[in-house]
């Protein structure tokens, strides 16, 4: 399992692995929003936590189809399915690898990008904490969506259509917690709800995703 994680990380880092694309996309979104809503600092700082959350979510979505698609095309997925690692483990590890190369960098970058939108002082901390807890759920839910669409030639758009509704609860609680925290209110309840979604996703979705993969490999 560790070997699989190392391999996936290595593949992401090497040329053509797509590492950093999500981060660049996130930066562009953070730059475009002020162009869209105007440079007024008060408005920007009010919407900053929500925009950062939506931006991170979309950046996360961007690389989901790579989780299984490449392994499916070159036959690795067949071989992994017959390897001694349980399919559920493969799914969990691949979701973890996706988080390490996408979710974690987004989380680390978000407080800095917040400066572009006049994010106010406790906001940097809250956007970091909420993304840190929430992005693993995004990767895991995304891995489930990727498992459903892995056999399809042009599954990318469909993948977005399937995954985005599933992201709604995480987004609502995550952005709500970030907004409340930034405004100096108690963010404990939405934070706990989001942590619950993350924990539940990590515990249960590998089984659903593994089932979907087995169906697609038949």
């Amino acid at each position: 399992m560790i070997a699989l994680l190392i391999r996936d990380m290595r593949l992401a880092m090497r040329a053509g692995g797509g590492f950093g694309l999500g981060l660049a996309f996130f930066l562009i979104v953070s730059t475009l929003v002020p162009f869209g809503v105007g440079p007024e600092a008060a408005i920007l700082s009010r919407i900053a936590p929500g925009i950062l959350w939506v931006g991170a979510l979309l950046a996360c979505l961007l690389s989901l189809d790579r989780i299984f698609q490449l392994d499916f095309e070159d036959g690795s997925l067949d071989l992994l399915a017959t390897a001694p690692i349980p399919m559920e483990g493969t799914v969990a590890i691949k979701a973890l690898a996706h988080w390490l190369v996408t979710g974690l960098p987004l989380t680390l970058a978000a407080p800095a990008f917040g400066a572009l939108m006049n994010l106010q002082s406790p906001g940097h901390f809250w956007i970091f904490v909420t993304l840190l807890i929430g992005t693993p759920a995004l990767s895991m839910i995304g891995a489930f969506g990727a498992a459903l669409t892995v056999g399809l030639k042009r599954g990318g758009l469909l993948l977005s259509l399937l995954v985005l509704p599933l992201y709604i609860p995480t987004l609502i609680f995550g952005a709500e917690a970030a907004t409340r925290g930034t405004a100096g209110l108690s963010a404990l309840t939405p934070l706990l709800m989001m942590a619950g979604i993350t924990a539940g996703s990590i515990a249960l979705l590998p089984f659903a995703a593994a089932a979907a993969l087995r169906i697609n490999l038949r």
Binding site: R7, R10, L11, R14, A15, G16, G17, D71, E73, D74, G75, S76, L77, D78, L79, T82, P84
Partner: peptide, 17 residues
């Protein structure tokens, strides 16, 4: 299946490794 290994048309090789 734990005793079987399958070699398909596709080799499952990673080009960048």
């Amino acid at each position: 299946p734990e005793n079987i290994t399958y070699g398909a048309h596709a080799d499952g090789l990673k080009a960048t490794l």
